[in-house]
Write a protein that binds this DNA or RNA. Structure first.
Lengths: 152, 152
DNA sequence: TAGATCCTTGGAGTGCACTCCAGGCAAGGG
DNA sequence: CCCTTGCCTGGAGTGCACTCCAAGGATCTA
């Protein structure tokens, strides 16, 4: 499925971290919603919902009105997936999508948004590392399993 | 009152795994709900809700029925705070609280639950580090700011 | 002793991110 | 031609974790 022999990534690969590999080469990239479900592991509901709320650019339609997603859409979805992992609220992702649609003069705003997100992520990582310490302390306590009369 | 200049609580250690520092010594530890709000930064609503759903042990009451929290309750809340940071669902925290109430024979189950949580946290940290890479790639792209006519 | 503030309760409401439903169109196979 | 499958839509429903409300009792401050 992820055909790594087709090195079809455009040099201006702005929608992803690193070279993306697509299921089909550009030109034949008209995926149905169920194909995109299989690729992204998002539900069809969610994909339609993303479009409705403006988190997706306008999606192509077949002559009968069915959605046809492109490689670009896939790249965007994969980036959105990363943003989602950061814990960014959907509303903020929509804001970012709007900035993209508004054109090049929003470059700075986008960069700033990304940098703020980056700081949030680092903060979150630090927090999680803090919880690891607590968890280890507790686990070690249970490991040295002397039942103590304590709320632990 | 809770900033790092006032030495009533070790700042990073507020929610700690190690020796706890309490606002008042054992024996004088009968905090009202609003004191606990100030200490934990949870809302009074949330504290009452925690009690209702069984996430707290039974809280002492004054002769008029008002809650009086102890140092032990504070310790528990700080641990719960850590668990919350891990992203553990409240239902699982309640489960853990139940195990604690059930007594020493649940030691193993508790340890296991904590170890699973620990693995989740490490997974999450790895995920976040992955997003950092993407973010850095993007930020760097905006940094080398040559506007390209593309969805970025 | 008055007034402000704090605390109590059960239950209802909120915001987020989906998630599902009903009802219907369109294409392909037997 | 019918049946199944896939897709469409707007709107309603879900689950989580709070968050707030109304109405009333308790406690502190002047």
């Amino acid at each position: 499925m992820m055909d790594s022999t087709t090195a079809d990534v455009a040099p201006a690969d702005l929608c992803s971290a690193g070279p993306e590999v697509h299921p089909r080469p550009d030109g034949q990239d008209r995926y149905t919603i169920s194909e995109v479900v299989a690729i992204t592991h998002l539900s069809a509901h969610t994909l339609r919902w993303y479009e409705r709320i403006g988190l997706m650019p306008h999606i192509d339609r077949s002559h009968t009105g069915q959605r046809r997603f492109t490689n670009k859409d896939l790249d965007w979805l994969s980036f959105v997936g990363k943003l989602r992992l950061t814990g960014m609220p959907v509303a903020d992702m929509v804001r970012y999508a709007e900035l993209v649609r508004e054109g090049d003069h929003t470059f700075e705003a986008r960069q700033e948004l990304l940098e703020r997100t980056r700081r949030d992520v680092q903060h979150r990582i630090a927090e999680l590392q803090g919880t690891l310490a607590v968890l280890d302390y507790k686990i070690q306590f249970y490991g040295g399993a002397k039942p103590a009369p304590e709320r632990a």
